[in-house]
């Protein structure tokens, strides 16, 4: 059985968990949230807010989805998680401009560490206060070639579309065979 991996990242409360829950055929592991309690994060026993889901592609192939912890303290996990990943979805809460700077940091971090195809999922596009994908591109200072895909992380079809857009990106750099 071959397994391939995609990483779903984003700032705290961007919608990573909802995204994986919506698209995963089985919710395997989802940790409890303690993002607001910074002091507890310093303790060794603190659980890490991270998610894991899977999609069976065929009898011999499985896609694993790893949601990264949003908290900065767990940056070290990103490197581990992104190892061997086909690509990255960076989820951004389009209604919360205060998280855009953190989103930019995440994009830069992954780019420096492990350049792999990535796209931005502009989440909560069903909300009145959501910034549009074009506005987000400017706010996040993204190059023209980076896709910013509208998304509603609680809707399966929307998440499916995001994954497909990422896969089209991956296909661009895939080798023959």
């Amino acid at each position: 059985m071959q397994t391939v991996k995609m990483v779903i990242s984003g700032a705290v409360n961007a919608g990573k968990t909802e995204f994986i829950r919506s698209i995963s055929e089985i919710e395997v592991v989802s940790t409890e949230r303690k993002a607001t309690d910074e002091t507890r994060l310093l303790k060794k026993e603190t659980t890490v807010a991270m998610d894991f889901g899977r999609i069976t592609i065929a009898n011999d192939l499985v896609l694993h989805l790893f949601g990264t912890p949003g908290q900065r303290r767990f940056d070290f996990m990103w490197e581990i998680l992104s190892e061997g990943a086909l690509g990255l979805v960076v989820v951004v809460d389009s209604t919360r401009p205060e998280t855009f700077r953190e989103t930019t940091r995440i994009v830069e971090f992954f780019n420096e560490m492990r350049p792999a195809p990535y796209i931005i999922a502009a989440n909560k596009q069903d909300k009145d206060t959501a910034w549009s994908p074009d506005e987000l591109r400017l706010a996040l200072r993204l190059p023209e070639q980076v896709k910013v895909v509208p998304c509603i992380a609680t809707q399966r079809d929307s998440c499916k579309n995001v994954l497909l857009e990422l896969l089209y990106e991956i296909m661009e750099t895939a080798k023959e065979g």
């Binding site: 192939l61 086909l86 492990r114 350049p115 994954l163 895939a174």
Partner: peptide, 25 residues
């Protein structure tokens, strides 16, 4: 972090299988 890891691109056939499956979800 200053030394990006080389990531070997996947094969097109593998990506095509993933696309087909996700489309069918």
């Amino acid at each position: 972090a200053a030394e990006p890891a080389y990531v070997e691109p996947p094969k097109k056939s593998l990506v095509a299988r993933l696309i087909n499956r996700i489309r069918g979800l």
